[in-house]
């Protein structure tokens, strides 16, 4: 039920999806191949559980998920 913080997101990405590799807010996750689509879907489920928000399928696009900063911006905007 908590708000999503940048630290929490970066921590989740590095511990769960990149195998310990640290991620900076503007690092590309998808275009760089750091995380694959299935990994992003895992992140989507995690974000939903964390924020109690539902992320609609049509919102799962590169613009919203390529960098941690984009994810934070998108999640803030999401009603």
């Amino acid at each position: 039920m908590s708000a999503l913080t940048q630290d929490a997101l970066l921590e989740y990405l590095s511990s769960e999806l990149t195998g310990g590799q640290t991620v900076a807010p503007d690092d590309s996750l998808l275009l760089s191949g750091l995380i694959d689509s299935l990994g992003i879907m895992g992140l989507v489920s995690h974000l939903e559980a964390q924020t109690s928000k539902r992320i609609p399928l049509e919102d799962i696009v590169l613009e919203h998920f390529d960098t941690p900063r984009a994810i934070l911006t998108y999640m803030e905007r999401l009603a």
Binding site: L30, L31, G33, D36, S37, I40, I60, V61, L62, F65
Partner: peptide
Amino acid sequence: FRSLSPEL
């Protein structure tokens, strides 16, 4: 054809 990732 842009999507979440080139691989997708």
